[in-house]
């Protein structure tokens, strides 16, 4: 009698793997900032249109995430942080990710155009193009300024949310864009300081790889200083107010304090304590952005009751 052993490798994708392709954690930030952009706008939209628009903006962001994973599969396989993603793990084929990314991009843009307006759809299309082509295909492997310029892709969602409600662009939506745009470099460089080995192995020209950690520490401080007036400036627009301004003042003081601590530190000290300060500032930067947009929501709620505005 012959025993037959079948050892099929379960590499077939489950639904969760396709969800992972859309970078759900990035999507959650996109949903939040786009929703704030929409809710703080002076004009209201029907709740169904608002929910549908936010979903399509999130879908577009997810589609660009799938395109990014398709293009960066070789880098992701090398980096410890990303080696478990569906394509390098062998559960989803690169071609599938490309097809899903392209199809969802088309659906998201067309549906946002139908649900809201053409400006919002156009901004979403540009965001997808910017993240997939300008950032992923061009900047990321070419220049250490990759995340400075590429940060624009993550900064568009509140502007799109604003465009859904108003059909236009205003100083408020431009400053919301600028807030995320200026926040991205110090946020990612704080991460790069303690994840440097990953980027170096993958050959991604992060500032820490090309110019060293001293220069990166200087950049974190300079960009955090430049970020503060943008964040505070938003408080003096129509969507700002005392609550936002007080929140921004505290958060920017905290971020500046952290950036100063990063700047003062020596690499040997940082290595000795396992990059304790850098990790703390990175975590703080996540709260920094979340709380700024939460403060804008609070202001919008106060404004609707005749309170809080300048």
């Amino acid at each position: 009698m012959t025993d037959v052993h079948v050892t099929a490798d379960p590499k077939e994708a489950g639904f969760g793997d396709y969800v992972q392709l859309l970078k759900p954690r990035v999507m959650s930030l996109v949903v939040f900032t786009a929703a704030v952009g929409l809710l703080v706008a002076p004009q209201g939209v029907h709740p169904v249109v608002a929910v549908a628009s936010i979903l399509f903006i999130a879908l577009g962001a997810g589609a660009s995430g799938a395109l990014n994973m398709w293009w960066d599969a070789d880098i992701d396989a090398v980096m410890r942080r990303t080696s478990g993603r569906p394509i390098p793990a062998g559960r989803v084929e690169a071609g599938e990710a490309l097809a899903i990314g392209l199809a969802l991009s088309g659906i998201a843009v067309v549906m946002l155009g139908l649900a809201a307006n053409l400006l919002a759809a156009g901004l979403l299309a540009f965001t997808i193009f910017f993240y997939a082509v300008i950032y992923s295909m061009w900047l990321k492997r070419w220049t250490p300024q990759n995340i400075v310029i590429g940060g624009a892709a993550g900064a568009f969602p509140p502007m799109i949310g604003w465009a859904v409600a108003t059909g236009g662009v205003g100083i408020e939506s431009i400053l919301m864009f600028a807030l995320i745009f200026m926040w991205t470099p110090p946020h990612f460089w704080a991460l790069a300081l303690f994840m440097n080995a990953d980027y170096e192995k993958a050959g991604v020209p992060m500032l820490t790889v090309t110019h060293g950690k001293r220069v990166t520490r200087n950049h974190v401080l300079v960009y955090t200083i430049l970020l503060a007036p943008v964040a505070m400036g938003l408080g003096f627009t129509g969507i700002g107010g005392p609550v936002y301004l007080a929140t921004a003042a505290v958060l920017n003081a905290g971020f500046l304090w952290g950036a100063l601590a990063i700047w003062r530190r020596d690499e040997t000290v940082a290595q000795a304590d396992g990059y304790r300060v850098e990790k703390r500032v990175f975590t703080f930067s996540l709260f920094y952005l979340f709380l700024h947009f939460t403060a804008l929501l609070v202001e919008a709620a106060l404004h609707s009751h005749g309170l809080g505005a300048w």
Partner: peptide, 16 residues
């Protein structure tokens, strides 16, 4: 009964 069948089911249900 295999892991692959469970994944297919989750995929079909998810897409549906």
């Amino acid at each position: 009964e295999h892991e692959i069948h469970r994944r297919r089911l989750s995929r079909n249900l998810g897409v549906g």
